[in-house]
């Protein structure tokens, strides 16, 4: 059900984008109004989300430690998997955010003749990393479409990304990688029984949506050429709040409008979905806190006053027995 629903919604968005590319009136709505709405929802939504998380305090320092603690000077601490300093924690977070350190640990358990065996399983790590990095690089490469002058890193990224110099136009590694990775992630959701049972429409939908963006993008670059000068003029106008003429809108191809509608949908969908893990990962208390618990007191802002059983109450109940057993007491009576 999750797959069908997600597919349906994705197709509806695709059709909407296509219709918008054909009908001038809709083109204005989808081309001029939608992007502002999308950018506003994305920015405000994400900020609200992060502020809401930040509003809740972190009452306890509950680091998950994944290596040797800092203890005696002659025992080697694992400073990245069990950091005790701010620098170590930064390193741990960097490994986590940039290289998916925890996912890299992944193993696969199977039962063979009543014996549990574990095998290395890096595919999820590999394709997740391929997907996220490709997405980032493709996004950065797109700066050539919406900034003038084009920032220095774009040319550099294009050179690296097109390193193999295959095809004309040169095929970007990230274009291939993102399609393969998304396909893997989607098929994994369907064919891995453990993942399928927990998958929701909100798990399939973002994959399809981003797949839609990638496919339309690849089509435009390699197969069905679109008017890139118009696209750039359009993008720069949007981002600099310049009015956009109907003439310019008419130069935008239906395929571009589909691509563009997918992107706007992603921006709108982002803050209200699991995609907020982009921000959340930085705030996860098991990862972003140093394991220096016994060195530095962590303060709980709402530390409650609780009822306690005092020593006096305890001794009052057991005094006679304590005296008889020769255990020292505070009061004789």
């Amino acid at each position: 059900m999750g797959i069908q629903l997600s597919l349906l919604v994705t197709v509806v968005i695709l059709l909407a984008g296509w219709v918008a590319g054909v009908l001038p009136f809709l083109k204005f709505i989808f081309g001029v109004i939608l992007p502002y709405v999308a950018l506003a929802v994305f920015a405000i939504g994400l900020i609200v989300r992060v502020l809401r998380w930040a509003r809740s305090p972190v009452p306890f320092r509950i680091t998950t430690t994944c290596g040797q603690e800092k203890s005696l000077p002659w025992i080697k601490q694992n400073k990245l998997d069990n950091p005790s300093s701010a620098l170590g924690t930064l390193g741990r977070m960097a490994l986590e955010v940039l290289f998916f350190r925890s996912l890299f640990r992944n193993t696969k358990a199977s039962l063979k003749d009543d014996r549990l065996v574990y095998s290395v399983d890096k595919w999820l790590w590999f394709f997740s990393l391929a997907f996220h990095w490709s997405f980032l690089i493709i996004f950065l490469r797109h700066f050539r479409f919406f900034t003038e002058p084009i920032p220095f890193f774009v040319g550099f990224l294009q050179d690296i990304d097109g390193f193999f110099q295959v095809g004309l136009p040169i095929i970007y590694i990230t274009d291939v990688a993102i399609l393969v990775a998304l396909t893997y992630l989607f098929l994994r959701r369907i064919f891995n029984a453990k993942v399928r049972i927990v998958s929701l429409p909100s798990d399939y939908f973002p994959l399809l949506l981003i797949l839609g963006i990638a496919v339309t993008g690849v089509l435009m670059r390699y197969f069905l050429k679109t008017d890139l000068v118009a696209v750039k003029e359009f993008a720069v106008s949007i981002l600099s709040f310049q009015p956009i003429s109907n003439e310019l809108l008419n130069k935008l191809s239906p395929l571009f409008m589909i691509h563009f509608t997918f992107v706007c949908t992603l921006l709108i969908y982002f803050p209200m979905s699991k995609l907020v893990h982009l921000g959340g990962i930085f705030m996860s208390p098991t990862r972003n806190l140093a394991n220096n618990n016994r060195m530095k007191r962590h303060i709980n802002p709402w530390n409650p006053v609780v009822a306690v059983h005092t020593y006096e109450e305890y001794e009052d109940e057991f005094r006679e027995k304590m005296k008889a057993a020769g255990i020292p007491v505070e009061k004789e009576e």
Binding site: W53, I62, V198, L200, G280, S284
Partner: peptide, 24 residues
């Protein structure tokens, strides 16, 4: 508890159901 524990709020919101934990 959502107001008192950031951990809970974050953990409710950001799981992507990748399933890495499943057989752990």
């Amino acid at each position: 508890r959502l107001e008192k524990y950031r951990s809970l709020k974050i953990f409710m919101d950001i799981c992507v159901r990748c399933g890495a934990c499943a057989d752990k």
